[in-house]
Design a protein around this nucleic acid. Structure first.
Lengths: 232, 232
DNA sequence: GATTAGGTTTGATATTTATCAATTCATCTC
DNA sequence: GAGATGAATTGATAAATATCAAACCTAATC
């Protein structure tokens, strides 16, 4: 494992309150793996074996039922995924695959839960992390139940725009098919939703989106900090 | 506070690993309140002040945005609500109101978080509880994104039927308007969804629903343990 | 027991969203 | 540069869901 990777992992909120020796023990037990694009990391229904930390690349969390598939979330560095399944020692509720070639740290389930018992700083961090995950899903659910597809797209564009420095344009890090699924709609509808937003200054240039009239877009989208603000 | 209430609270998974003196201290700081029907307990966007434990009655958690309102969950004894907001010391993401006259234990935010720091048994229970809450919302989201309204209704009926002892009939504990919102549809559509399920042996008698052909209903609903099984 | 209020159902219709098929576009390979 | 592949878009249509209005039912009130 590269020294600056260790540093990055150490800086994660989840690990920053952990005692140094516990952190080292956990790292020693962990595996660092690089996966090619489109590799399946976990499958829903399987018992949880590792806690995953994304160091490089992008991971798609998705779920299936009755021949339908939907994207639940995209995980980018330096975030963890499927923490809840590990803590409850339960089966995964979501599957995970790489989008691009990705580097991932895998910490065995048993080591995470051992550290949970012995390191109170780690335990407190886990509580905060989990509470944050919970609130993120609740916001997602409000987004789904209270907005139309077009409103969801508009607000997502505003969010990405802000995250990328409010420069008047933004880049989509996943293809439109995935974005559509993430927003709970079909690719065809996403395409039409972009057209509907044209009068509000939304220009689509492949993966680059230009927002030429942010005020108009925000008036339309009516962003709500209790849904869209990741930090709340 | 009645002795058997204390006993019930003590038995909650959230408190069962707490040290006796910490539990007593927390209880001493808590308020026991009885609210009439339709009383608003908390409003989304307000800073969190209490952790709530439902001892009697039913609480509806709901959210609003742009003149729309949706029911997020119904909380019955003996469960807690808005734990995540308290732990993060953040604003509420959901509002809460009583459905019927309800008795509720209110533990001040600061006492919960103090106990979190000092009582490691409590901290571990919180981790498990939170992880469970997270997984419940993830299941909800899969339910919303992967199923039609009619499938959601069918599976919900099967779940209530099982929870109530699989006697061939079940009772709805909330009115149909609320059930519709919980399932992400309008009351009119819920009514029509019930009609659509008639060929599968679903009989509606006010708040009582009879399932006369459970096999047929399950064949239609295709229940999925990774969505419908509360214990997974 | 008549009256009222609110929940529920039904009917007619509109809107939203999905599906299917065809076409365009971009990218990669040879 | 031709061909092949898959994503993205467009058009036509179907299905799902919401809306609006009216009727109906039920329970509470006076």
């Amino acid at each position: 494992m590269r020294p600056d990777d260790i540093l990055e992992v150490r800086k994660l909120h989840l690990f920053e309150n952990m005692q140094e020796d516990n952190f080292q023990a956990m790292l020693n037990a962990a595996y660092l793996q690089t996966f090619p694009a489109q590799a399946e990391l976990i499958r829903e229904g399987d018992p949880s074996d590792f806690l995953y930390v994304v160091l490089e690349g992008t991971i798609e969390l998705f779920a299936q039922s009755n021949d339908h598939e939907t994207t639940m979330a995209m995980v980018r560095p330096f975030n963890t995924f499927i923490l809840a399944a590990v803590l409850k020692d339960a089966v995964y509720l979501m599957s995970a695959r790489t989008v691009q070639r990705s580097r991932v740290l895998m910490i065995p389930n048993s080591n995470v839960r051992a550290a949970l018992e012995t390191d109170s700083g780690f335990t407190r961090s886990i509580v905060i992390e989990l509470a944050g995950c919970y609130r993120a899903v609740v916001k997602d659910q409000k987004n789904l139940k209270l907005r139309t597809t077009i409103e969801r797209l508009a607000n997502r564009l505003i969010r990405y725009h802000k995250e990328q420095g409010s420069t008047g344009s933004l880049e989509l890090f996943h293809d439109k098919k995935t974005l559509a699924s993430l927003l709970g709609m079909t690719p065809e509808n996403l395409s039409r939703a972009f057209n509907t937003l044209k009068p509000y200054g939304v220009r689509v240039l492949g993966n680059r989106i230009e927002l030429e009239d942010l005020d108009a877009l925000e008036t339309f989208a009516k962003p709500d900090r209790l849904i869209d603000d990741r930090s709340v």
